[in-house]
Design a binder for these strands. Structure first.
Lengths: 214, 214, 214, 214
DNA sequence: ACTGACGGGACCCCCCGTTACT
DNA sequence: AGTAACGGGGGGTCCCGTCAGT
């Protein structure tokens, strides 16, 4: 029997961490509370003390991972310190992939959300949440691309709306592939180059020269 | 009760169709054989006569949908009839989205594979299959982009390898978003414009020539 | 694996019989499906094939026992073959106690309904059913007592309504006590005498004599 | 947090009261300690401090309600102040129904014991207790009816034994019906009349005297 | 005197796969 | 080709009792 508040909090964290690992191994539907309990070295009773059920446990994990990431992304994109808008976008994309590559908790959580989760029934709400985040990102990107447009950095014929949408699509696809088991690990090493070229594709051609781009 | 061959085949198709609808509604893990049986208006026994288990049923559906699509894609990309390589890529991308938009069976199947399936345990093989298809597509795209490069159609600094990879990423992301419930329906209407701009981002800028841009 | 229809029906009966015994031993709430299954020498799967859940199983038992008993009671009370109304009431009461005493299935079922069942939640409906049966019996008894009143058989000052109500109360109390484990067995032997005196208490005094009653 | 004796006693009473309400709502078997705790606005631990378990809690409630009622009944029946024995019986019966009708704690407790309790396993002892009380009541009633017989108040042919037994049966049935949810409320209003007639059925007919009948 | 945290132990319900049977 | 009936096996959920604290 645990005693102090701190011990309880530690138990709660151990459960969440164990759940994440187990979700990643067996998928959410196939993960049993007993699996999680054994991985966390507690009993199912302890899990049900901290979380009402498996769904809530998953939600807790998602929020624990997702929220700080989004905040950081917004900061990267919208903070005025960086002068060049396209540079902020590049940095934003690099940051996301970097987080996936370095922080194993982030990688596992997104891997579960991407490949080990059936968005059905109760979890349909989570998918709506996902759409909301996508839309949020697209909105922010649009603002940044507008800035770039006003500075004349955007390729001719490319509106900020479409540019933001394509970058969103690019990000979604990149994350999905980077989260694959082995393929993703290899891909993440080329991610920087890929991001570079994606941004370059949005860039205006420097006129007055021989037609070479930056 | 003896049935004819045709009756049996009809039953088999009804089961597959019912399974697809049920997978889409409840997810693969949560779908029970009883659900499928009721949707197909047969008993579970009938399903077990045609398919050994749920996994095999899912595989049958996948192959039934996937194979013809891949064949057509390869044909679109590699057939020499089309002169312009970038045009073939554009047409390939449009074809995929068009199939998702128009053929509800294709849409449901990909929706299940994207959002209603946990790639875990037995299904990990399916994911490996997915990677193989991605790699195949990237390979074919690389060949086409090489062609384009030899004709001088590619943007300076953009290697065929990276271009193919980015287009693959773009396709993966686009499909994922287009398969969302309502958001996807709206997005599919902008897909043509988006694809246009994606290809345009790969294109060399014609300077001092006729100024023609696709 | 059972085969023919008859075998299945036998299994169904074995389950109901085993359930009745087990309900009586452990009460409805404490009875587990495993208990019933073992008592019926089948698996829980078989029980759930024949009955949707424990509640339905209980309801099936009740209807199986209750309905024929009520029909017989109505027949005893309302059939015109018997001339004397009060005699028909005596015979009705004797019949009920006799059924409890002799038919062990009836005794067990009523014992469960009386002492081994919590009329709460889903089962509140069963209690309403019980009230309906009581009211039905009271109604029938009222008609019979009216007949008796018209023949001048009823004690002065006793209306058919009140007489019927008291007999109903008497029956409810008698059954409750007769269903007790050992006390009930002893009581059932005195039931005939008790019923005799109950009816006698309703009877009119034969006037013109010295005040002695029949 | 040190509480005074009074606070503790108040908590104990709140728990018992809450338990009674909860038993009545969910039945004893389905009532969980958590239900009671919430109804009493304490934690489960508080209940376990005052009572060892649910069974003991139920027993405490029963004794709290039952004992004073029995004492009063004995007093009513056996105190010599009342001259007429049959009148004492009538008053005893009226008292019981009056207590059920007026005191909601009494009504709830008896309702639980009658309809929300499975007398099985541990609770079989409670049923034996019930039988003992019934026997006690029958014994006391027999003594009173003997008195009545010696005064010539009993109907001819009716022995004190049988009279006492029938009154016991009558009381059991009357209580059972009076404790029903709505039906009981209506019945309680006719209880006085019913009791009157029950006693009248036991009374000797005065012939050639003043003709007075109660 | 009372609470928070946890271990441990069922039980219902559901589902899968199979076989005798039609 | 297809069904009814059954064996068997978990898993989520809930609950109980307890003990260290306060």
């Amino acid at each position: 029997v645990r005693r102090t508040k701190e011990d309880a909090e530690k138990t709660r964290c151990r459960i969440m961490s164990a759940a994440l690992r187990t979700f990643n191994r067996h998928g959410i539907a196939c993960t049993t509370m007993e699996h999680i309990a054994q991985a966390a070295r507690v009993t199912r009773g302890a899990i049900y003390w901290h979380f009402t059920n498996k769904r809530e446990l998953f939600r807790a994990i998602r929020e624990d991972i997702s929220l700080p990431l989004i905040d950081r992304a917004d900061y990267t994109l919208l903070s005025a310190r960086e002068c060049d808008p396209l540079d902020r976008i590049r940095r934003f994309l690099l940051d996301v992939i970097h987080a996936i590559d370095q922080d194993s908790r982030v990688r596992l959580a997104y891997c579960v959300m991407s490949y080990k989760c059936e968005y059905v029934g109760d979890l349909k709400g989570e998918l709506a949440d996902y759409v909301r985040k996508i839309e949020h990102a697209r909105g922010v990107l649009t603002r940044v691309y507008k800035e770039a447009g006003q500075r004349g950095d955007l390729r001719a014929g490319l509106t900020p709306d479409v540019a933001a949408l394509e970058t969103t699509v690019f990000l979604v696809g990149l994350m999905r592939l980077c989260l694959l088991e082995q393929y993703g690990t290899r891909l993440r090493k080329q991610a920087a180059q890929l991001i570079e070229q994606h941004v370059a594709g949005r860039l205006a051609v420097a006129v007055g020269r021989t037609g070479k781009r930056v």
